[in-house]
Simulated assay, not measured.
Amino acid sequence: MKIYKNYNYQGLNEVFSWHPAQETGLYDEIEVKLPEGAKMVKNGFDQDAVELDNGCICPDLLTMHRNGKSFPYLVDTTGDKPRNIFLKEVNR
């Protein structure tokens, strides 16, 4: 699945998104692997989201910054405690 690493977006160095930045040259296309059983869907507002195999709809593609690197992830909100699910980049 293709996502985008946008640069200098809202004051942060790198932010992952379902769509590229409007300015050409300020993003990279990144291939990631969704968790097993997950699929891309549209939410009630016709926006991209991921449906996990447990039925949780994850509308937001989030970015975690650690040690100078950025990582794309989703949040599974089923159960008592939210769980971060990091997306693995293909060919990284």
Rank of each mutant, 00 (worst) to 15 (best):
G44T: 10
N54W: 10
Y27W: 12
K81Y: 12
V41I: 15
E89A: 04
P20E: 05
V15E: 03
I85M: 08
T24I: 09
E23Y: 03
N67S: 11
N84Q: 15
Y7E: 13
G68V: 08
N43K: 05
M1T: 10
N8A: 14
G44P: 07
D53G: 07
N8I: 09
K2M: 11
G44N: 14
V75I: 15
P82M: 05
C58M: 09
P35N: 06
N6W: 07
T77V: 14
R83M: 10
D53M: 12
L87I: 08
Q10T: 11
P82T: 15
L74G: 01
K69N: 11
K81N: 11
L34N: 05
G25T: 06
H65G: 08
K42W: 04
E51H: 00
P82N: 07
D46M: 13
L34W: 04
E51Y: 00
V15T: 12
V32H: 01
R92E: 03
L34Q: 10
W18G: 03
K39Q: 09
Y73Q: 08
D53E: 12
Y27E: 15
I3Y: 01
T24H: 06
P59L: 03
I3W: 00
N13R: 14
L34G: 09
F16T: 02
Y4S: 00
F71P: 00
K81Q: 08
G44R: 14
P59S: 04
L34C: 08
L26P: 03
I30N: 05
N13Y: 10
L12K: 13
A38G: 00
Q47Y: 15
K39A: 14
N84M: 13
E23Q: 09
F16N: 04
F71W: 09
T24E: 01
R92V: 03
A21C: 13
E31V: 12
G55I: 11
G37V: 03
E89L: 15
L62I: 10
G11P: 03
T63V: 01
G68Q: 14
N67M: 10
T24V: 04
F86R: 09
N91V: 10
K39S: 06
F71I: 11
G79N: 09
S70G: 15
D76H: 03
D76I: 05
C56N: 09
K81E: 14
F86M: 13
E23P: 00
N43Y: 13
V15P: 07
Q47T: 09
F45P: 00
M64H: 13
E23W: 03
R92C: 00
T63P: 00
P35M: 13
E89P: 00
E36A: 02
